[in-house]
Computed example of a mutant assay.
Amino acid sequence: MKSFVVFSILDQCFGIDIESVKRILPSQPLTKMPDEDEHIEGMFQYQDEVLKVVSFRHLIGLKSYSAQLRTLFPELKDQHKEWLDALTHSVDEGVPFSKTTDPHACQLGKWIDSFHPDNVEVLEIMKDLSFHHQRLHHSAIDVLALGETCVEEAHVWIEKNVQEIYEHTMSYLSKIEDKSEEVAVDLQRCLILKGKDNVPFGINIDAVEDIVHIEEDALHKASTLQTMGSFMNVDSILDYEGKLVTIVKDIRVEKTA
């Protein structure tokens, strides 16, 4: 029987032998280290040791979580500008509203529902963002009902009420965007690994999916040990609940020669 910590990076799943994992922590605020390789995100104090932290995203050639968020937030703003335009178009043309009145159904709503920050300042901004975002989507219900009887009054409602709620929502979304680094820390997890010569280090990952216990013959072994970049090897694949999980044989802080 083998046990693995299964974790995800975007839609990719990886596994690492639980014997190599000392602890699973929330991602930690890091002190940047000058002249370190790009895959080293920084270091932090863990118990009596100072640990280096590796970005698993960087190891597999992806942008950092904070960089991904800086791409995501402008997209969310564009989507809600389109939402407001679609509401006006629906009232003007008397056609069905093409967007949603459910604040939990849009991409921003799903992101808000999935994010539970530990950072107090981020938490307060998220509460305000969630409140105004829900008001925004619900306001469309009143506008559409009003538009069925009086288009002019519906326009006034959009200009005086919906527009104001929209601006509040975008303002708080901008505040979250400014906190991309803090949000990335809150969203990620850090695996503390034993490391070479029993020197521990951390790897930042997107999320821990599960801890699985399987028979060794369930692993699909690669014919040879495969190298992923200069810092890790993989040797097998696991089919777990319909997902392909790449089993990482080892991860190194230092580049191999």
Results as ranks from 00 to 15, higher is better:
Ser3Trp: 01
Phe4Lys: 00
Cys13Tyr: 15
Ile16Met: 10
Ser20Leu: 15
Val21Arg: 06
Ile24Tyr: 08
Leu25Glu: 12
Leu25Arg: 08
Leu25Gly: 09
Pro26Asn: 12
Pro26Lys: 10
Lys32Cys: 15
Lys32Thr: 15
Pro34Thr: 02
Asp35Cys: 13
Met43Phe: 02
Val53Glu: 00
Leu59Ala: 05
Ile60Phe: 01
Leu62Gly: 11
Leu62Phe: 14
Tyr65Cys: 14
Ser66Thr: 09
Ser66Leu: 08
Phe73Lys: 01
Gln79Ile: 11
Glu82Ala: 13
Trp83Cys: 05
Glu93Gly: 11
Val95Glu: 02
Pro96Tyr: 03
Thr100Asp: 12
Cys106Gln: 04
Gln107Glu: 14
Ile112Ala: 00
Asp113His: 04
Phe115Ser: 04
His116Gln: 12
Asn119Gly: 09
Val122Leu: 11
Ile125Ala: 08
Leu129Arg: 01
His132Val: 04
Arg135Trp: 12
Cys150Met: 14
Glu159Lys: 14
Ile165Met: 07
His168Ser: 15
Thr169Lys: 05
Ser174Asp: 13
Asp178Pro: 12
Glu182Thr: 11
Leu191Val: 07
Lys196Pro: 00
Lys196Trp: 06
Asp197Asn: 08
Ile203Tyr: 05
Asn204Cys: 15
Asp210Glu: 10
Ile214Asn: 00
Ala218Ile: 13
Ser230Ala: 14
Asn233Lys: 06
Asn233Met: 05
Asp235Trp: 06
Ile237Val: 13
Gly242Phe: 03
Lys243Tyr: 07
Val248Ser: 03
Asp250Asn: 01
Arg252His: 11
Thr256Ser: 06
